[in-house]
Simulated assay, not measured.
Amino acid sequence: LLVAHQPDLGTAVLLALTGLTVVILAGLSWKVIFAGAGLVLAALPPFFFFVLHDYQRQRILTFINPESDPSGSGYHILQSKIALGSGGLLGKGYGLGSQSQLNFLPEKQTDFIFATLAEEFGFLGCAAILLLYAAVIFMALRTASLAHSHFGRLTAAGVTSTFALYVLINGAMVMGMAPVVGVPMPLLSYGGSVMLTVMIGFGLVQSVRVHRYSEVTASKSSLF
């Protein structure tokens, strides 16, 4: 709620989804999960009309029909789709993308870095990148499954879910399958803060692997 109040709805949604993933993995009853999902769906219409800011509502409407304002609010999505399609199967080559190099594609080094790579390295290049992401996610989930401690499992799974959601949301955004939000592509987007947080997350996962045979037990003398 504090992050959403900034306002930064994209990051707030990401935090909520990560928290929901951890709660589900911790063993929350499916009845409670389905009941909560029903309440969220019922709250979406009033949330859209009375809580979201005007620019946030415009992002959702633009996602539904980006062609309604091609030179304004729909510019980002349309240019990203053009870059994705112009790359073809093998791409135009490193540094030879017309959309990115001629600055038609906005935020080509951060939020839309995946579209830049698609134009320069094509479908095969993007598929290779996604396979590498899938390998990282698989190894991190493998680490979570090997941990003897419930806390270790939830820690590794929570960090992994955050990483996976970043990849999923950013990839869907640049392909026009999700509204445009300020979510970077981890390990690819320019910026030191996102790289630092991702590396800290990897460090936590590695720590879970190193201490996978340790078990965290509750102490009767502990206050927590």
Rank of each mutant, 00 (worst) to 15 (best):
E67W: 13
A42H: 08
L41Y: 07
I77R: 00
Y94K: 14
A26N: 10
L44N: 04
S98V: 09
G10W: 03
K92T: 02
Y94M: 08
G36P: 09
A37V: 13
I64K: 02
S29E: 12
G87D: 07
G95Q: 08
D69I: 02
F47D: 00
D54E: 14
G74W: 07
Q79M: 09
V51R: 13
P46K: 01
V22Y: 02
A42V: 12
F63P: 00
A12E: 09
L84H: 12
L52H: 04
G88A: 05
I64M: 14
L89Y: 11
S80C: 02
S71N: 15
L78Q: 01
K81T: 06
F48P: 01
L39R: 07
S29R: 15
Q56V: 05
G91S: 06
R57Q: 14
G88D: 07
I24G: 02
F49C: 09
A12S: 11
P46H: 01
G95I: 00
G85V: 00
S68W: 06
R59Y: 03
K31V: 13
H53Q: 15
F63I: 01
L28E: 13
I77W: 01
P70A: 00
F63V: 01
Q79L: 08
D69A: 01
F47A: 15
F50Y: 15
K81S: 06
I77F: 01
V13F: 14
L41N: 06
P46T: 09
L78M: 07
G19I: 09
G95M: 05
G19V: 04
S80I: 08
F47M: 13
L61A: 12
T18F: 03
G74R: 05
L15T: 03
L78P: 07
L17E: 06
I60Q: 03
L41K: 02
A26Q: 04
L15S: 05
L90K: 15
F47N: 08
Q101M: 11
I82F: 07
L90G: 02
F63Q: 03
T11I: 10
L61Q: 11
Y55K: 01
Q56M: 11
A43Q: 05
A35Q: 12
L61T: 11
A12C: 04
V13E: 11
L15A: 12
L102M: 11
A42G: 03
Q56K: 11
L52Q: 06
L41C: 13
V51E: 12
S68F: 12
L90W: 13
V13P: 14
I60K: 00
G91A: 08
Q58K: 08
G36W: 03
G74M: 03
P70N: 01
A37F: 13
G38A: 14
L89F: 13
G74A: 00
E67S: 14
P66N: 10
L84S: 06
N103R: 14
R59H: 06
G87H: 00
L15G: 08
L44D: 00
T62Q: 04
A83S: 08
F48R: 11
A37M: 13
D69T: 00
D54C: 00
S86C: 04
G36Q: 04
G36Y: 06
H76W: 04
W30L: 14
T11N: 14
F50C: 11
Y75M: 02
L84Q: 10
K92C: 01
G10F: 05
H76M: 12
I77P: 00
V22E: 10
L102V: 02
